[in-house]
Design a protein around this nucleic acid. Structure first.
Lengths: 231, 231
DNA sequence: AGAATAGTGTCTATCAGACACTATGCA
DNA sequence: TGCATAGTGTCTGATAGACACTATTCT
């Protein structure tokens, strides 16, 4: 009775799609998979899947749990290891040729030192990191190009006022590494001296603390190592 | 066949809920309705309704169309008359006792001079504007208190960098009226002189143009009238 | 010593907060 | 003339951009 009381109207399918981002060297990258099934078989797409709902239309997993589950299946990265935040919900009636599919999109930020273990743990037929910018992205299935663009704009905006850059570097990082993340995300160069000043204020505010050791450089003077102070 | 190919899995119901905000005098207000049906009959709630999906699980209205439709039904305000933007999607498995209901929440900003026509056009049994702050809000149904809080925080953040304040004042407005909107939204006072300086820069950038006439004040010196330059 | 990168100091323009001040309309 | 509100000018401290400079490591 309880499930029936929301009415006998037709219901859409509800999916989650993931924009999984990282920065390697000076490049912002996104993890894409090749679809193994129709429709749009063999075209590149964002990883995702349907939200699990209990029999009778009650219970099941939360949206965040569905996103975290897909993320773990796709990357092998466990809960809490990466930043995961809801982006936007896409529901145009014709966005999926199979019928009415509403997609709750999420974006994830993967630290650069975990990128190597990601593709290995993937259970997709094929998963690959693609650089954004430079026009090297393949055509994407459904409305995934739109979703990807929205995710990138969200991170670009958020990096200026929220501590998201730290989710893209290893736990221990140097100032030039952090600056490279900003430059990759925003697509512009930052003056090294001015960036350091902003960074120094974060140190003074206790947001960042020194970590032991220095980073041996391939060439030039080694950099000091730092660590984000919060959990 | 096409609708079936997304699988025979149980599907959630999908709804839209609306946080309809306005500023009257110095108060930020939200439009709430009393639920005419169980569950939580007679408790106050955000206006909302289910997204219409075609028979066979294809087609139907977009999420934005569903939100705009509910807004029009609830307030009598036509398309494009008010600012409407997606907020967040709520999907905890137990958020609705009737079963699995995923809600795509939107928020709307109603200009203060349209507030009077709003309640008249409502088709709800009872609809009322409630002031936020001052603790005068009634308990809300489901997770609507959470949604309302998220909406207010979104507007508070967005007013600093996006032209949303102009969606809360009449087409023609004075600087003190605009300042009152900022103060109501942010919950803090603004120095009148410094606010004017920010405002003057927007005039210099062509974002705001003078409108004819002055606003006759009840008391004191009348204020000049301005108009937002865009669409 | 020289090359390469890490890190510092400083000048300047811009902007926000604080606040003293002037202008206008009305009783 | 006095009151209430609209609107201006200016001082100060914080911050971002530009850029010249010093420091450390390796070959």
């Amino acid at each position: 009775m309880s499930a029936v009381s929301v009415g006998p109207f037709p219901r859409p399918a509800v999916a989650v799609d993931l924009v999984i981002l990282t920065v390697v060297d000076t490049d912002l990258k996104v993890l894409l998979i090749t679809r193994g099934l129709p429709p749009q078989e063999r075209s590149w797409a964002l990883p995702g899947g349907f939200v699990r709902v209990g029999e009778g239309g009650t219970g099941g997993e939360s949206l965040e749990a569905a996103a975290a589950r897909e993320l773990a299946e796709e990357t092998g990265l466990g809960e809490g290891a990466v930043f995961l935040e809801q982006l936007y919900t896409y529901g145009a009636p014709d966005r999926d040729p199979r019928g009415r599919v509403i997609s709750v999109a999420w974006y994830a930020l993967v630290p650069s030192d975990r990128v190597t273990q990601v593709v290995a743990g993937s259970d997709a037929a094929a998963a690959r990191w693609f650089s954004l910018g430079g026009g090297s992205l393949p055509p994407l299935a459904f409305d995934h190009a739109q979703i990807l663009g929205d995710a990138v704009r969200r991170v670009q905006g958020k990096i200026d006022y929220a501590p998201v850059a730290f989710r893209l570097v290893p736990e221990q990082f140097t100032v030039p590494e952090l600056r490279a993340v900003y430059e990759a995300v925003k697509g512009t160069d930052y003056d090294a001296a001015n960036f350091r000043r902003r960074f120094r204020r974060m140190v003074e505010d206790g947001l960042i603390v020194p970590a032991p050791g220095k980073r041996p450089a391939e060439v030039g003077r080694p950099a000091r190592v730092w660590r984000w102070a919060e959990g």
